[in-house]
């Protein structure tokens, strides 16, 4: 599973340069859901169960239309800058998961109809792990992963 994602990422990183300038937001349909905070998703202990609670499914389809920008080596796991760009048309949400965190789901961004497929934030990572970006579009989940090495963990004391 993880190896598959890595391979997808490698493919994706080649294509990403060309597509990142393209814009998919114009094709979005209006929708506005202000969901209550999904406690179960944020407390879930694995990527699959977090996605089940958040999106109702965990079947991920690798996509080269998502690119993650994160450091290869993060010296300080408490502050790992992560940017996700997607050119998938109709992207409804972008979620960022750190696979080996105690609770993998770190953040989920619900995008409005005119919002572009781009978010940037900083996350905490407990240890070296794969950072997974999951994009929801048209009822399906697309994902890409990137391995980030952490030298000092950012969770716990």
């Amino acid at each position: 599973m993880i190896n598959m994602k890595r391979r997808t990422f490698l493919k994706g990183s080649v294509a990403a340069g060309a597509v990142s300038a393209a814009v998919g937001a114009g094709l979005l349909t209006p929708r506005m859901v202000l969901a209550a905070w999904p406690t179960a998703a944020f407390e879930a202990g694995s990527v699959d169960s977090a996605l089940d609670a958040l999106a109702g499914a965990h079947q991920l389809e690798g996509s080269d239309k998502i690119s993650i920008r994160a450091p290869d080596i993060a010296e300080n796991g408490a502050v790992v800058p992560v940017s996700v760009t997607t050119t998938i048309a109709g992207a409804e949400s972008i979620s960022i998961l750190a696979e080996k965190n105690a609770a993998p789901l770190t953040a989920s961004f619900n995008l409005g109809p005119n919002t572009e497929g781009y978010v940037s934030t900083r996350i905490k990572m407990g240890k070296t792990s794969s950072v997974i970006a999951v994009v929801k579009a048209g009822g399906k989940l697309y994902s890409t992963g990137k391995e980030v090495k952490v030298t000092i963990g950012g969770c716990g004391g």
Partner: peptide, 25 residues
């Protein structure tokens, strides 16, 4: 007055969080 982005965050977002995104219109 129209929501362009709603972010749901867990405790694993860094201290003094930074957020960036883009929208049209």
């Amino acid at each position: 007055g129209t929501a362009v982005m709603t972010a749901l965050w867990g405790p694993a977002v860094s201290k003094n969080p930074y957020l960036s995104f883009k929208f049209k219109g």
